[in-house]
Design a protein around this nucleic acid. Structure first.
Lengths: 207, 207, 207, 207
DNA sequence: TATGAATGAGCGTTCATTCAT
DNA sequence: CATGAATGAACGCTCATTCAT
């Protein structure tokens, strides 16, 4: 079992104008290949060629193959991260459970709608073990949810799993919808029904 | 974009004792590598080497790399498949919603507990686009659920998403538990709480 | 430079009925592959498979790959060989030059018309260095021609090259016709014109 | 039946001195192997090894195995091509038939004498289906001959086959001489006798 | 800094041939 | 005898990465 490659970040921050263009071209080409070609075609040589950049230049900005992926993931999940950071920061104490769930689900759905194609591709083609950034982020989310739900689930007998259910369920449903039922996302009933789904349990009226 | 390779099954059935050993060794080695090494290390040469089998012998039983994976998936998901097939076959008409959910969740959890390590590995390391068998199976499941829920969710206003929520949520929660919270699985409250979770919504008491 | 593989002939003469069938199937399959597939596909395993014969059985009748080719060549060039053998044996002393050339050209053309497809294939796909049998045979032919022409080319100043020209020219023209101008072979003027061609020189009227 | 691979030319033009050496070494090694070893030994790995060049470097300049052969053929047949191009270009209208044939045969013989060894090897070892370049060239030649002979074969009854006989016969005789009778080429009578041979027919004095 | 050139290691796959039953 | 199984060696080719200029 190899240790996870340490070099996740670009080795150099491009300060010069030209460098920025180079890095941009590389990331664009990499994204293009991920979207339009096979995962097996995603090689550093191929990326450099597509970017019109010399392979050696690529290695001046990215220490290895993984770091290119990492950067793409980082860029791509920025919005999602922003969502959870906002949930963490903004004062939501005035909302009742229904309103809170509505906000969470809406924001979350919106944040996943940005680049659904790339998102789907990454899901489908990239081994999950490369997804560490997103996963870490998702881990955070569970804690955020737990905090948000506190004091709003009095009737719930066993509060232990609430955050886990919410995070896991929400995440899976949105991803599955993006991935396999794109029509759901434009269905006006989808979000309300998901809210109902979670609310039914969290409001403690089960059984 | 390549179509999924069709060759899913071994090209040759091992009839003699000797060859059964060979095939066994190959599958064992492949599983070992999937469990203990990187997905990128999963090469036919590596598998053959680890199995102590000549690479050409490997190709007498498996027509290509993918077919090895297919066989492992097949073996591994047999139990899960059995579960959904059973749900499809057995007469469950006497059960009320609570009893039905209890059976579904229990069976499903049990079926995932068999080889959790391999299951986790496959999830984590193998690009999702290779998972076609399991996915196909999962697709079936949604239909099964829809059928089972019919006539038992009268109070539900919008029945459209019920099967999708149940399948997606259940699947994700169990996988996430297997993957990241093994302790949940031995918690006596876990299954009942999941049942509550789904029942709350499906019994139509939301909002 | 490897020495030419010695084993040109089948290692075993199939006396039993079953053996004959096996050998026949092998040769048929080999011929089929040569005709319908790439030269690169012509492998012993492939031949055995196509013949429905176990690879180990194949090696009981043919000591190596080349011997299969040799046998096909031998069979195929039997007719051609027969032609030159006949020319060597039969008494042709009564014929004048024109009649002799007519016989030679006619016989030779006829002998090449038998399996033109296989002939073409062999020409196109098999490296010429494997053609030793045919070539040897062709070598013989030159001597035969020299003998036949003796006493019939009095007017020729330099008799040294006569046999060479006749054999080489005739051979090349027929092969080229078979290979690239199949229509020539059915043209009633083709043979007479070839006869004219050689006769013009051999009758000594040049310059 | 595969179509002939299109990639006939190197994928990358060597601009630096170093790479020219590399490409040279590859072509030299390839030629060496063709001359001294079996056609079956002509593998990209073997060529690279013999050239003292990394196999991956080889693939930077030659996109596949065939392109190496193509390049060798191209280089080797340049002179021959030059001959026919010259025949096509130069004004030969002042020559009578005898002079014309003399020029054609002389030029043609000369053009084949350059690298007779390699020429022989290619003929002997490389499957004819790989010879497309030379063949194309040879095809052209027949047309050139037809044009040259026009107006100089009045006495010929059937002019249809003249070009075919000349091209095929000349080609075969020279190749056969190069291949099996190297002494012929230095015999002062060889060329004149060939001229006589063709002239006898073309001057229309047959029969 | 950018680029042309290089390379060790490895890939998936097939070959001709042999052995044990 | 025939057959299932095995195998060493090699194939064409690509990879991630580094060096020299």
């Amino acid at each position: 079992m190899k240790e996870p490659k340490s070099a996740a970040k670009p080795k150099k921050f491009p300060t010069q104008e030209r460098s920025k263009i180079t890095v941009g071209a590389i990331l664009e080409a990499a994204t293009y290949i991920l979207e339009h070609e096979d995962w097996e075609n995603f090689s550093t040589n191929r990326v450099a060629e597509k970017a019109g950049v010399n392979i050696a230049s690529l290695y001046q900005y990215f220490p290895n193959k993984e770091s290119i992926l990492s950067e793409i993931f980082r860029m791509h999940s920025d919005e999602i991260r922003a969502t959870s950071r906002e949930l963490e920061t903004v004062d939501l104490s005035a909302l009742n459970l229904h309103q809170l769930l509505e906000k969470i689900v809406k924001d979350y759905v919106r944040s996943h709608q940005n680049e659904p194609r790339l998102h789907r591709i990454l899901q489908a083609k990239v081994p999950k073990s490369v997804w560490w950034i997103d996963e870490n982020n998702a881990g955070d989310l569970e804690v955020v949810f737990d905090k948000l739900l506190r004091n709003r689930t009095e009737k719930l007998k066993n509060k232990k799993f609430a955050g886990f259910f919410l995070k896991t369920g929400l995440n899976a449903m949105i991803r599955e919808a993006v991935d396999r039922h794109p029509d759901y996302l434009s269905d006006p009933d989808f979000v309300p029904e998901m809210v109902s789904f979670f609310e039914a349990y969290l409001s403690g009226s089960g059984r």
